[in-house]
Design a binder for these strands. Structure first.
Lengths: 375, 375
DNA sequence: CTGAAAGCGCTAACAT
DNA sequence: ATGTTAGCGCTTTCAG
């Protein structure tokens, strides 16, 4: 390992001079030609500052930990990690991954993080769920991503579920649909309540009646397919808002069986913009995308803003590399809701109004909207 | 921060005594009651050893870096990360995540890792691809996961693609299929060649002719659906081996349109065991699962074995928590192939022979099989 | 059985 | 403008 000592020896200066130069504190203190020579020697020797030694002195490690259960089990895991890692990288932080699988013996892992002196923690879920952040972390810097806490003591970000239901339904209404079905989820998930609420809001706003019989709550497999077919057979909706893409597929199955054409005879919109469904179905499925990358990105920015006491977004020290959507502001009080955009494919009859759909208009209203904790 | 100094003060002993006790080097050197008291004080004070200081002395950080592009873009990302993190955790290592998105400016990230003194590197892809490991890493400990290198200089693990094609096709043959179609991938991927090869091997072994017209190479969307329909219409196969689950879905679509029942009139097998497809289709799709968790797990074990010069698997210091499949041995020469199991659902007519299918029998032959680099 | 002391690589206050 | 020095928290000889 090359150290400052080696550089000092080779450049015939003292270690402190090397330190001053390497840390750019040499302005007006070290002769430029000496500084230049130090850089040259450092480069020749292949010097890398020892982060360990640096951290030992400064008490700051420039590392954050990304804690989550189910790193493995959902297709979207990577997007959140990617977003968080991207922001961390740009801000000069390294990110550890910790799998809190089933809340197992996470305390042992946290012990290890405490040993490392990690500067802050991102606690993430891969589906919008209630979580309990381990109390051990309560005194530390923690940000919660894609989840709600019962206690609501940490800053957090989550998708605007009501907005999803509202935008999706409105999109169908704008396409001319008047009998819009909702294929829901049979679990009492946060998302289920929110999306249903948004669905009803959009209907009401358009003066359309809410009809319980146009809604269904299903899981997967044959029972789900049969429930969807029964609803479509009995109620003949002209549009379907599905809780997610996987459930929207049953509408396609029905259409194939009955010779209907999706996007013509029947409009469908899902949620997730799941690549493996939306880009492979015929026709491709229009879907609301959950901004996982963006949530991860926000989470890392937020935790680092707490660590450093300054706002990396306002300071323009960071740019999302994967998306054009603006990152919600960091300084809102209470939880931050993030808007979810409709990704237009071809499963909805007619054109959306304007080039950008209503979802885009919603953006300005919803991005970073702060909601009362009781919501 | 609580330090050994604090403990020493409170316990009225010297720092070195505390160090001996905390590191379990006190056997026969420190009076048991003093040792006990030190532990008590440490606990009261909430002491966590400072990993930074420890590493500074020892020159070992007990960290590994997981470098990959596309952390975000595939549904399987998380499984590999999960497996690697799981092994690392059990062996007392922390794992950094680095996104080498598009080979961008990865050198900057590697600089940072060099500063950190990371002990080893896992270089992973999320689809079996050719990679070039950045030359900067060549002198360091590197393991390649789910990829091949042109140079083949680092230890690596990848799926047994030929075995996938062979097992899947054999499964259909065992179910009584005689006209077996192959829906391939239109890209020249490693997986495409391997699976096709296995398909042909199984046919040949069973004395069935290979018929080019029973094969097709497709992408996604309408052209893919049409190609699949044309093949099925023209050749009337009784079984279909699809390159992956997403392509297998087009066979389902065809069946819905023509009133055929999958798993009765037509058998189908895919690859990926993609949750969102295999558990939601009616009937559920039988599929070959790529052991991502296991590959990640192997990768971390391997890199740590290189770092420490001993075999954590043989030493039984580590157990996969997510799977029952044995981890391939670490000591084989050349690349390691990992077997992929068939996950039985209901899309194949008849029962598989025996409770465990032929895939399971293959396991013993293929797990950890080492192949010549030229293969 | 226990403590004193050196030093890992680096930073920063202080001295020259 | 450059060098000296103390010390971050810990480990590890070496004395006692």
């Amino acid at each position: 390992m090359v150290t400052m000592k080696d550089i000092a020896a080779k450049a015939c200066v003292s270690i402190s001079t090397v330190s001053l130069v390497i840390n750019h504190h040499d302005k007006g203190r070290v002769k430029p030609e000496i500084a230049a020579n130090i850089w040259k020697v450092a480069d020749e020797l292949g010097y890398h500052p020892n982060a360990m030694a640096r951290s030992l002195r400064s008490g700051r490690t420039h590392t954050i930990a990304f804690i989550s259960d189910q790193v493995a089990t959902t297709p979207y895991a990577g997007e959140i990690i990617h977003g968080a890692q991207d922001a961390a990288r740009q801000l000069g932080y390294m990110m550890f991954i910790i799998d809190a699988d089933g809340e197992r013996n996470i305390d042992r892992d946290i012990d290890r993080m405490l040993s490392w002196g990690v500067d802050g923690y991102i606690y993430a879920k891969f589906a919008n769920r209630y979580v309990s952040v381990p109390p051990m972390l309560d005194d530390l810097q923690v940000v919660v991503v894609n989840a709600e806490e019962h206690t609501a003591i940490h800053p957090r970000i989550e998708p605007d579920e009501v907005g999803i239901g509202y935008d999706a339904t409105k999109r169908l209404i704008d396409a001319g649909c008047r009998r819009i079905a909702y294929i829901g989820c049979d679990e009492p998930a946060i998302a289920q309540f929110g999306r249903l609420k948004g669905y009803r809001q959009a209907l009401e706003e358009a003066g359309l009646p809410f009809d319980e019989r146009l809604t269904s709550r299903v899981s997967y497999g044959r029972p789900a397919l049969e429930a969807v077919c029964a609803l479509l057979d009995g109620m003949h909706p002209d549009g379907v808002f599905a809780f997610n893409d996987a459930r929207a597929v049953y509408v396609y199955d029905y259409a194939f069986q009955h010779g209907l054409t999706i996007g013509k005879d029947l409009s469908v919109i899902g949620v997730d913009n799941h690549e493996v469904i939306c880009d492979t179905t015929v026709p491709p499925l229009t879907s609301v995308e959950l901004p996982h990358y963006e949530m991860g990105f926000w989470g890392a920015c937020k935790i680092i803003s707490l660590i450093e006491g300054r706002d990396p977004i306002k300071d323009k020290r960071v740019t999302p590399s994967y998306t054009a959507a603006p990152t919600p502001p960091l300084d809102s009080d209470g939880p931050t809701l993030i808007h979810c955009s409709i990704i237009e494919k071809e499963s909805i009859a007619g054109k959306p109004r304007g080039q950008r759909n209503t979802g885009a208009v919603q953006t300005s209203e919803t991005i970073g909207r702060s909601v009362p904790t009781a919501a």
